[in-house]
């Protein structure tokens, strides 16, 4: 039997690739920012699932730090878009 965690990670990685399609297609910069935000969220989910699959709790600590740091980068991109930087 295939481990359910690996199957879930596989589907999530395919979803990340689809979000990257919007990143390349996106007509405006804001669309691309939304796509990057989505990819960050999915990456955090993938990291949590991989932490269980490999029995490594350090992966989940990495996921926490990744969520907070990607939030900072999103805020800076948004400020740049709004012309406040």
């Amino acid at each position: 039997m295939i481990e359910p965690w690996y199957a879930a990670v596989f589907v999530l990685v395919i979803l990340v690739c689809l979000a990257l399609a919007r990143l390349f297609l996106g007509p405006t910069a804001a669309d691309r920012a939304v796509a990057v935000d989505t990819v960050n969220t999915l990456s955090v989910a993938v990291l949590i699932l991989l932490g269980v699959a490999y029995q490594q709790i350090i992966f989940i600590d990495v996921a926490i730090v990744y969520a907070v740091l990607s939030f900072v980068s999103t805020l800076y991109i948004a400020k740049y878009l709004g012309g406040e930087l």
């Binding site: 920012a33 969220t41 955090v44 939030f71 999103t74 878009l81 406040e84």
Partner: peptide
């Protein structure tokens, strides 16, 4: 803790992108 961080950062981040997009 990771799930809570995700929920808060996502909501605030999307608010920021929406505001930036409307200002641009």
């Amino acid at each position: 803790i990771a799930a809570l961080a995700l929920a808060f950062t996502n909501a605030v981040g999307s608010h920021a992108i929406a505001r930036g997009a409307h200002r641009s």
